[in-house]
Nucleic acid binder design. Structure first.
Length: 946
DNA sequence: CCTGACTCC
DNA sequence: CATGGGAGTCAGG
C-alpha cells in the first residue's frame, strides 16, 4: 500500500531553515568589516576603550537597552560559572553589537547575575544590583518585543515561547522586583533563546541551553539557532576541531592557571587559528580559554578584582563576536550557511535536552553482576597463572604474548602473522587479539582463559563500574542542579486516563538516571559522539558470566559452593540497566535500516543497485526485469544484501545462500570504506582471489558504483574536500599529498565521509523535526511553556480518556490553540496523538537509531495497551522516512545553488561540472526511501521488534 | 571507514 | 613519582 506522497508541512521546513532575521535580510552579501587576517591592533573591529564601559547596570537605561537590542547586529552570550563553585551558574553575560555608520562597532554589554550562588556572595560584581538588573531585563524583554513589532522585526509569531507577559508583569508589580525567583530569571533567559532578533553568538551553545531548558522544557523544539563559534570552526575543518588543536607551548603559559583538559578546543584556539586578535590589554585579563566553568574551585586568581573580572568578560564577549564575524564570512564563502543555520546551529538545544533528560537507570543488575564478575576474574587469573606455570600479568598483552608464543610455544595461522608482519621484515609482531587466541584454543587451554578474562574485565571496567559511579553525578558539564526536577510536572497518570499505579510516583520512586554527554563537534564526518560514559557502544549481546568460565574451573567451583554459584546471575546485559522512567512508560527504539547502503545506491544512481537497496520501492518503479526479484523474495520483506547477492551471483533471490549473502554484504560495506580485496578476503575467510572475484562481479553488475567511487575521488582531488548532502564538508588535504600512504588514506576517507556524513545529516534532521513536534505538543497540552499556572492547569485537568473522542476536546481545551509557532507542525496529528507526544522524551541517539521514553498503557492485552506506542510509531515513521529526507534535500538544494553560483563566478573553475553534478544531484530528490524499524520494551536490553 | 574506554609501555 | 602519547584491543555504528 503506497501512502500518499509525502506532504511536508511548510512550518516544519521553515522551522528547520529559519535564519535569524538579520541574516535573512542581508543574505550572504552582508558587509563584514572584520579582516580575515588581523592586520592591526584594533583595525576597526574592536573599538578602543569601549570594553566594560557599559557594564554597570544602571548605565544602561531601559530605553537604551531596547533600542540597542533591536538594532543589534550580533549578541554575544556566555553563561558563567561562579568562581567559587564553577559547577553552579552565576550569571549570564550579554554583549550587544552593531555596525555604526562610521564603521566602528558600537557595543553595549549587560551582565545578568542569576542563581542561588550569587545571592550569598557580594564579592561578585553586580550582585548588589541584582534586583534592579533582573527587573530591567524583564521589562526590557517585554518592551523590546513591542518595539520589535513596531519596527517590523516581528519575525513570525513567537507566541508559543513568549514570556507570559501579563502575569510576569503582574508579579513584578505586586511584589518587589527583586523577588523574582530563579525560575523566572531562567524563563527570561529561555525567552531570549527563542528571540528571533539579532544573531546570538556563543562558544559551545549547548551550555546556554542547560539552564533555559529547566525553565522551559519545550524550548528544545523552538529555540533559535545560535551562532556557535565552536560549531562554525568545526564545520570549516571538522578534523582539526574533532581531534583538538595542536597544543603550542605558548598558550598554556601566560594564564599560569590550571593546565586544562587536553583536546578540548577553546575560543582562544579558534581565534588564533583564524588570526582574530583583540588588544592585548583585553586578552591579558581574559580567563584562560574562557573556561570559567572549569577551573579549580577557589582558584583565587579570578575571584579577586571585580573590575578585572568584568573586563575579562567583556574581552571574551568581544572576542566571541569578532571571531563569529570572521567565521560567518568563511561559512558563507564555502556555501555552508544553509547547513549551518538549517541544521547544525539548531541542534545544540536538542542535544542539551537529551543530555539533561538522561536515561532512567536501574543499578540492580549491575551491582549483582559486579560481584559475580569480580569473583570470576579472580578465579580466571589464578587459573591462568596455573596453566602458564608461573605468575604473569594477564592484562598485559606484552606478557600474554610472551607466555603464549615463547613459554608455551603456541602458533597462530601463518596467514594472520604474515599480514601483521608486513613492512620491514624484522620480527613478527606477536598479536594476541581474539582471532589469534581462538586459533590457539586447540593447542592449549590458556587462550580460552585469557579471552574469558578479557571479556569479563571489559564488561566490569568499561560498563558496570563506570555506570554505577556516574549515575548520581553529572560528569558531562551540566551543573548538577539542572539535572534535578527536570520536569515541570511529574508524570501524572490521570493525564493519561489511566488507573493509578500500585505505588504512587513519589519523589522517592523517581528512578535514578544515567547522564552522558552527546557531542556535536568531535567527529570528522558529522556523526555525534558520546562520552562520560559512552552510551553509543553498549554491547548488544549479554556477556555470559556463567559460560565464560572454562569447563574445568566451572565444575570445580560449582562443586565447591553449589549454592553460591546458583545465586549468581548467569549473564549480564548492560542495556537492561537502562529502562523506561516509570512503570507506566516504555522505551521505543526506531532505527534506519541500512541507511548507508541506501545512500550509496542514491549516490551511485545505478538503477539495479537502487532496486536492490530499495525493495520497498521495487514494485512501484524500475524496470520490469527486477520486479520479480522483490515479489519472489523470502516471505517477509526481501533483504537488501540478498538482492544484491542475487544480482552478483546471477541467481534467483530465493536461492541465495548465506555465504553468498555474506560475501555480497562484506564487499558492499567494503566499497564504502575503500576496502581492498585482501582486507575483504580476511574478513570473509576466503582467498584474496575469491574476494576479488566477488568485488569484480559487483562492479560489473552495478557500474554506477564504480562511477561514483571515481567521481568522489576526482572531486576530492579537484577541491581538497568532499560534501555531504546538505553541504557539510570534510577537508582532505592528504588527497594531494606526495606521500602514497596519506593519499590512499584520503581516497578511502572521501567516499566514507560522503556516505557516513550524509546519513548523519538525515538523522540530525529527524531529531530536529521530532524535537519541534514534541515541543509543539507540549505547548499544546500544557499551555504556554513559561507560565507555571498554565502548566499546573493542564496537570490538574480532569482525566481524559485517550480512547474516546472526549480526549480531542480535552486537548483542544488544554491549549491546542495556544501552540503558537509550531501549531502547523501538529496539523497532521489528532488530539490523542498530540497528547501522547507531549509526554515523550527523546533519550538517546546511536548514529542511526533514536530511543524514546514514552507513555504506555498497562494491561497489555488488546489494542488499548499499545495505543500510545502506535501513535508514536506513526509519527516517527512520518518524520523519519518522509520529512527528514525532504528537509535534507531542501537544505541541500540551497547549498547546491550556492555552489553553482560560486562555480559560475569562476571561483571553482577547476571543478568538472560533471562530477559536481553527479556528486550533488540530491536536488533531484532521493532515489531511495529510508524506512525505519521499531522495537519496544520496558528496558533497553529487552526491546522486541515491532 | 567513524568513534570511546581501558590497559600497558 | 606524575603524566602524556602511543599502541593494542574491543564495544558500537
Amino acid at each position: 500500500m503506497q501512502a500518499a506522497p509525502p506532504v511536508v508541512p511548510q512550518s516544519i521546513v521553515a522551522a528547520l531553515s529559519r535564519p535569524p532575521d538579520a541574516l535573512a535580510a542581508s543574505g550572504s552579501a552582508v558587509p563584514i568589516r572584520v579582516p580575515l587576517r588581523s592586520d592591526g591592533r584594533d583595525g576597526g573591529a574592536v573599538p578602543r576603550s569601549e570594553h566594560g564601559q557599559a557594564w554597570a547596570e544602571d548605565t544602561l537605561s531601559l530605553r537604551e537597552f531596547v533600542r540597542e537590542w533591536v538594532a543589534s547586529d550580533v549578541v554575544a552570550a556566555k553563561v558563567l560559572g561562579h568562581p567559587a563553585c564553577p559547577s553552579t551558574v552565576a550569571g549570564i553575560a550579554l554583549s550587544l553589537e552593531r555596525d555604526a555608520t562610521d564603521g566602528a562597532v558600537a557595543r553595549q554589554a549587560v551582565y545578568l547575575p542569576v542563581g542561588e550562588a550569587v545571592e550569598d556572595d557580594d564579592s561578585l560584581p553586580g550582585a548588589v544590583a541584582r534586583r534592579r538588573v533582573v527587573d530591567t531585563l524583564v521589562r526590557a524583554m517585554l518592551s523590546a518585543e513591542t518595539a520589535a513589532r513596531r519596527a517590523g522585526l516581528e519575525g513570525g509569531s513567537k507566541a508559543s515561547l513568549a514570556l507570559d507577559g501579563e502575569r510576569l508583569k503582574g508579579a513584578t508589580a505586586s511584589t518587589d522586583a527583586g523577588e523574582l525567583t530563579a525560575a523566572e530569571v531562567w524563563a527570561v533567559w529561555a525567552r531570549l533563546l527563542s528571540w528571533p532578533g539579532p544573531e546570538l553568538a556563543a562558544f559551545d551553545a549547548k551550555l546556554l541551553f542547560y539552564p533555559a531548558l529547566q525553565a522551559c522544557p519545550s524550548l528544545a523544539g523552538g529555540a533559535r539557532p545560535v551562532a556557535d563559534v565552536l560549531l562554525a570552526a568545526w564545520m570549516l575543518d571538522p578534523d582539526a576541531v574533532a581531534n583538538g588543536v595542536a597544543r603550542s607551548r605558548g598558550d598554556a603559559a601566560p594564564g599560569g592557571g590550571a593546565a586544562e583538559r587536553s583536546r578540548q578546543i577553546t575560543l582562544h584556539d579558534v581565534s588564533a587559528a583564524y588570526g582574530v586578535e583583540l588588544p592585548p590589554a583585553v586578552l591579558r585579563v581574559a580567563p584562560a580559554g574562557g573556561a570559567a566553568g572549569r577551573g579549580a574551585p577557589g582558584s583565587g586568581a579570578e575571584a579577586g578584582d571585580g573590575a578585572v573580572q568584568l573586563r575579562s568578560l567583556a574581552g571574551h564577549l568581544a572576542m566571541l563576536a569578532a571571531v563569529w564575524r570572521c567565521l560567518r564570512v568563511l561559512l558563507s564563502r564555502s556555501g555552508m550557511l544553509p547547513a549551518f543555520w538549517g541544521q547544525e546551529a539548531a541542534l545544540p538545544c536538542t542535544l542539551a535536552s537529551i543530555e539533561v533528560c538522561g536515561m532512567a537507570f536501574d543499578p540492580e543488575p549491575l551491582t549483582t553482576a559486579r560481584s559475580a564478575l569480580t569473583a570470576l576474574l579472580a578465579s580466571l587469573k589464578a587459573e591462568a597463572n596455573e596453566l602458564a606455570g608461573g605468575e604473569f600479568m594477564i592484562t598485559s598483552n606484552k606478557e600474554v604474548a610472551e607466555v603464549l608464543y615463547e613459554r608455551l610455544g603456541l602458533v597462530a595461522s601463518a596467514q594472520r602473522q604474515a599480514y601483521k608482519a608486513r613492512g620491514p621484515a624484522k620480527r613478527m609482531h606477536k598479536t594476541t587479539n581474539e582471532a589469534t587466541l581462538l586459533q590457539m584454543q586447540d593447542q592449549h587451554p590458556l587462550p580460552a582463559v585469557i579471552l574469558a578474562h578479557r571479556k569479563a574485565n571489559k564488561s566490569l571496567t568499561t560498563y558496570v563500574e563506570p555506570f554505577l559511579k556516574h549515575r548520581t553525578r553529572a560528569r558531562i558539564g551540566v551543573p548538577a542542579r539542572f539535572l534535578e526536577a527536570r520536569r515541570p510536572v511529574p508524570p501524572a497518570l490521570s493525564e493519561l486516563g489511566l488507573p493509578p499505579p500500585s505505588a504512587p510516583l513519589t519523589h522517592e520512586a523517581e528512578p535514578l538516571r544515567l547522564y552522558s554527554a552527546l557531542l556535536q563537534t568531535c567527529t570528522a564526518t558529522g556523526r555525534l559522539s558520546s562520552r562520560f560514559p559512552n552510551t553509543q557502544n553498549l554491547p548488544k549481546k549479554a556477556t555470559e558470566i556463567g559460560t565464560l568460565r572454562p569447563p574445568a574451573t566451572a565444575a570445580a567451583a560449582a562443586a565447591a559452593s553449589p549454592a553460591g554459584e546458583a545465586a549468581l546471575p548467569q549473564s549480564l546485559n548492560v542495556r537492561s540497566a537502562l529502562r523506561a522512567s516509570a512503570p507506566n512508560r516504555e522505551l521505543v527504539s526506531v532505527d534506519y535500516g541500512q541507511i548507508e547502503m541506501r545512500l550509496l545506491a542514491h549516490f551511485a544512481g545505478d538503477p539495479a543497485f537502487v532496486a536492490a537497496a530499495n525493495p520497498e520501492m521495487a514494485a512501484a518503479s524500475l524496470d520490469p526485469g527486477h520486479s520479480a526479484a522483490a515479489s519472489s523474495g523470502s516471505a517477509g520483506q526481501p533483504d537488501i544484501y540478498q538482492l544484491v547477492a542475487a544480482q552478483c551471483f546471477s541467481v534467483a533471490p530465493a536461492s541465495v545462500t548465506a555465504s553468498q549473502r555474506q560475501q555480497a554484504k562484506t564487499c558492499c560495506l567494503g566499497f564504502m570504506y575503500g576496502q581492498g580485496k585482501a582486507d575483504a578476503a580476511r574478513k570473509l575467510g576466503v582467498t584474496p582471489a575469491e574476494a576479488g572475484a566477488v568485488q569484480q562481479s559487483l562492479r560489473t553488475k552495478f557500474p554506477g558504483i564504480v562511477r561514483f567511487l571515481a567521481s568522489a575521488r576526482s572531486f576530492a582531488k579537484a577541491h581538497g574536500w568532499v560534501p555531504t548532502v546538505i553541504g557539510r564538508r570534510r577537508l582532505l588535504p592528504g588527497i594531494r599529498s606526495a606521500n602514497q600512504a596519506a593519499r590512499s588514506q584520503a581516497e578511502r576517507q572521501c567516499v566514507n565521509a560522503i556516505i557516513q556524513g550524509s546519513a548523519a545529516d538525515v538523522i540530525k534532521s529527524a531529531m530536529l523535526l521530532l524535537g519541534a513536534v514534541i515541543a509543539a505538543a507540549r505547548d499544546a497540552v500544557f499551555g504556554p511553556p513559561l507560565s507555571r499556572e498554565c502548566i499546573a492547569r493542564a496537570a490538574s485537568q480532569p482525566p481524559a480518556s485517550v480512547a474516546t473522542p472526549a480526549s480531542q476536546t480535552a486537548v483542544d481545551a488544554a491549549g491546542f490553540e495556544s501552540a503558537g509557532t509550531f501549531r502547523g507542525v501538529l496539523a497532521p496529528f489528532d488530539g490523542p496523538t498530540v497528547w501522547t507526544l507531549a509526554h515523550c522524551d527523546v533519550v538517546h541517539q546511536i548514529h542511526d537509531e533514536l530511543v524514546l521514553d514514552i507513555p504506555s498503557a498497562p494491561g497489555g492485552a488488546g489494542g488499548a495497551g499499545t495505543a500510545h506506542r502506535g501513535r508514536v510509531c506513526r509519527v516517527l515513521e512520518r518524520i523519519m522516512t518522509d520529512l527528514a529526507p525532504a528537509a535534507v534535500e531542501r537544505i541541500g538544494a540551497q547549498w547546491l545553488q550556492l555552489v553553482q553560483e560560486e562555480s559560475r563566478a569562476g571561483r571553482g573553475a577547476a571543478l568538472g561540472g560533471d562530477s559536481v553534478a553527479r556528486l550533488v544531484d540530491f536536488a533531484q530528490g532521493f532515489r531511495c526511501r529510508f524506512p525505519v524499524r521499531f522495537a519496544a520494551g520496558p528496558t533497553y536490553g529487552s526491546l522486541v521488534d515491532l
